[in-house]
Nucleic acid binder design. Sequence first.
DNA 1: CGTGATTTTGAAGCATTTCAACTCTGGTGG
DNA 2: CCACCAGAGTTGAAATGCTTCAAAATCACG
Lengths: 283, 283
Amino acid sequence: MSLSATPQKVLKSSGTARYATLPAGRYDTRDHDYAALTPRSLEGRMVPAKGSSAPRSFWRESLALVEQHVAFGRRKVRADDRIYLCGEAFETLYLVNWGLCKLVNLAPDGREQPADLCFKGEWLGFDGIPSGRHGCSAIALDCGELWTIRYDALLQASAKEPMVMRVVLAAMSAQLTRNRDALLSMSTLAADARVADFLLQWAQSLAERGLRTDQINVQMTRADMGHYLGLTLESVSRALSRLARCGVIEFNEKGRRDISIPNLSALSEFIQNSTEARSPVLH
Amino acid sequence: MSLSATPQKVLKSSGTARYATLPAGRYDTRDHDYAALTPRSLEGRMVPAKGSSAPRSFWRESLALVEQHVAFGRRKVRADDRIYLCGEAFETLYLVNWGLCKLVNLAPDGREQPADLCFKGEWLGFDGIPSGRHGCSAIALDCGELWTIRYDALLQASAKEPMVMRVVLAAMSAQLTRNRDALLSMSTLAADARVADFLLQWAQSLAERGLRTDQINVQMTRADMGHYLGLTLESVSRALSRLARCGVIEFNEKGRRDISIPNLSALSEFIQNSTEARSPVLH
DNA sequence: CGTGATTTTGAAGCATTTCAACTCTGGTGG
DNA sequence: CCACCAGAGTTGAAATGCTTCAAAATCACG
């Protein structure tokens, strides 16, 4: 998901003309005379940047509130450890204290795909709530520590302490938004831009956590990245090569998984440009 | 997503019960703007149940619990009404009492995509929680009625009545799962199968609500469906034509938006087959 | 310092998009 | 009543971008 006041956000408001901003909050969307309003006519004018309000670092609040108000255990993991598997009974949630995990979705017929990446302060296990069984598998990409929180304990704590509930809802909602943004990327961006966007998201997750954004170690194979992005590993490799050739990214000598981003806004400009080339404007 | 029991899939399917049959004769025919329903049409055509657990109908619980425990207003909408717009301040959630809505995600640079479809009993507005501004626009696809629920009122009610909190978490989690499944479809299914999957999901949403699944009126243009699925409108049209040619679906004389699904399992078999042709097996 | 896994790169194949023409429907006005 | 028009949908042919297949280069681990 997008954060808040990052270079990318700026682009958002300054984007195509039809999304020019208006003073927010003054538009009555309740039913009036819609005869005059064709869908297009409104699209042309609304839409201030989303998330323009606060950079809200929920990861910090999640950890702080859980530490204060909820009983939890600790679990150390190493790369490739399975935290839980799709189909297992759900009873506990996990909060990433440090490390990095991926959530892998699995279809009944065996198709699978990494559905999300979870950095420090993010929750794993929401997928199990409605059915009582996990709908994804969670796998560590790096060594780290998780806090384990029983779901019923969390519910009790939430009832007692409203802020806990707030933060859980916010965290879940943020995951939802992140997923929708991923969906949007997949359906609107070409391969190169999708890879660029992937790196940008990663960098922004690091930025939110106060980490340096100019160096990323993607703890995945090209194949993993490809599955995550809906591309083949060859396409990912080619895309990275092209990004490097454009100077938008650089490979570290250490290895092809260490990627430098000399200039974040150059990266988001790259995405910007490729979308303009693609969609000269809908309608 | 598709169903059917392959060995790998037993894990997930055993618990989710998203495809379970409904008990005969219990169909809610009261309020809906859907096609008129004759319970007879449901007999013998439902998708076989996957697991042993019940088909948890959260839509029903959401409505019941809100009605009992939360203060809410009512708002009537007609097709193409905007319920809220991306960027507006978030303060209230909406629960679909009847009708059908779409959530449209919008990127800073103007790219947009329908991110979800919400049937009766589903919630709109979760996208606004973390930032305080809506991250999507919600638009009615048909006339209907929404219950409007102030977020702070909902939080208070949740603190008092644990079941309210449970159902909200479950609803949000279900949306998350749905989005992840959409992502999976987009990255693993070819165009025809993706369209087939779309229809299957729709039918299952109807089935969960006790409505007939053999006739669907997709209240969208081909272009909308295409945006939702990451395809062009021409591709959607061609895919539908091919599905009809295979006999997996039929067009009603009424119009090209009325689609009959004579046999749901044939539809999911179609998806199955096309994935087998594609991915010989990962790993 | 090999051996297997990962990554890169090339060339051919193919699915989807793009561009374009045409049909069908519903609504409007002469 | 019919002509006309705009929007939605279908279909074909060409273009394009990603995948597939294949081979070589590089990395990683014992």
